[in-house]
């Protein structure tokens, strides 16, 4: 009997797609059961979505005012109280899971496999290190509980199941600390497609030159139904907010089509897009390293290319 517990990521209303990707990873472990744990102040929306995912056995909820915001110090002891009996405890490799899962692992007295990119056996995994320049294969010893984060770009979002599974409220006697308090969440958000799930991403780098330059990329993205991303240099320079950063220390994405405008192609950036279907690079420097990985390269001024694309797609 092997059992998997997946910690759901959600915003209080809807389930994040990262959870479905964790389910896809869990299915490769060929377990006997996959439970999803939803913690929140109102779990109903995310829980019913989770109950509809194919391969899921049961959804468990822990509903409490304390869980209104995902504070790891608050969530981890509750998860650790539920975790015994599960062979695997998985979370997504998003900022939510990265912050939370090591805390869970430490409470459970085990280690954590970060960023599972493939499952080679029930206890064998692969993960990237050195910004993806090296891949490590590892084995978790028999008898040790596996706590891991799932590199979401490596697994599909999965399909809906035939009929929703049961949702059960779970009680724990975990002690909840008061030393960590939520103040606010600032999102630029809007109704633009989400960078981590969009089919097409239009990204810009330092070459875009400023916030006005990015307006042109937003306009092209709008036309293509695409999300907008950026290099670290563009974020550091204040052209766009931090949540648009793609790369080793930003978001790891796998769109079908990725446009890199005015991005040189540093390894830290490339590691964030190596699973993209088609990479298009536009750079005025024909020697830019981005052309070594691009499927389609065009050497030229990005603004000319963007306006021609808009015109010809229009």
């Amino acid at each position: 009997m092997s059992k998997v517990l997946i910690i759901a990521e959600h915003n209080g209303v809807t389930l994040n797609q990262s959870t479905a990707r964790c389910v896809s990873c869990a299915l490769e472990l060929a377990p006997d059961c996959i439970d999803i744990l939803v913690l929140g102040s109102d779990c109903s929306g995310p829980a019913s979505e989770a109950a509809g995912l194919k391969g899921v056995t049961r959804v468990r909820t822990i509903t409490s005012e304390a869980n209104a915001h995902p504070l790891s110090a608050v969530l981890a002891p509750q998860i650790a109280a539920v975790a015994p009996g599960y062979d695997y405890v998985l979370g997504p490799s998003t900022t939510f899971g990265k912050d939370l899962m090591p805390r869970v692992a430490a409470l459970l007295g085990t280690g954590q496999v970060s960023d599972i990119m493939s499952v080679d056996g029930p206890r064998r995994f692969r993960r990237p290190v050195y910004a993806g320049n090296v891949i490590v294969s590892l084995e978790v010893p028999e008898g040790r509980q596996v706590v891991a984060t799932v590199r979401t770009a490596s697994f599909p979002a999965g399909a809906p199941g035939d009929s929703p599974v049961a949702v059960e409220e779970t009680a724990t006697d975990a002690t909840i600390p008061t030393h960590t308090r939520f103040r606010e969440l600032r999102t630029a958000g809007g109704d633009r497609p989400d960078l981590q799930t969009a089919r097409i991403v239009v990204s810009g780098g330092r070459g875009v030159g400023g916030a006005e330059g990015f307006e042109k990329l937003y306009s092209l993205a709008g036309q293509l139904g695409a999300a907008v991303g950026a290099s670290r240099a563009a974020v550091d320079a204040g052209y766009v907010p931090n949540e648009l950063q793609v790369g080793q220390t930003g978001k790891i994405i796998a769109p079908e089509l990725y446009f890199a405008f005015g991005i040189s192609g540093a390894i830290q950036h490339l590691t964030g897009i190596k699973d993209a279907g088609t990479i298009v690079a536009v750079n005025k420097d024909p020697e830019a390293p981005i052309f070594e990985v691009a499927d389609i390269g065009l050497s030229g001024d990005l603004f000319e290319v963007v306006s021609q694309l808009e015109e010809k797609l229009g």
Binding site: R124, N133, S137, L138, V140, D295, I296
Partner: peptide, 18 residues
């Protein structure tokens, strides 16, 4: 916590065209 079995190079992306 784990045993590392091997270090390998990532699958290279096929070079595209200009």
């Amino acid at each position: 916590a784990f045993q590392v079995l091997a270090h390998t190079a990532p699958e290279p992306r096929a070079r595209g065209r200009m």
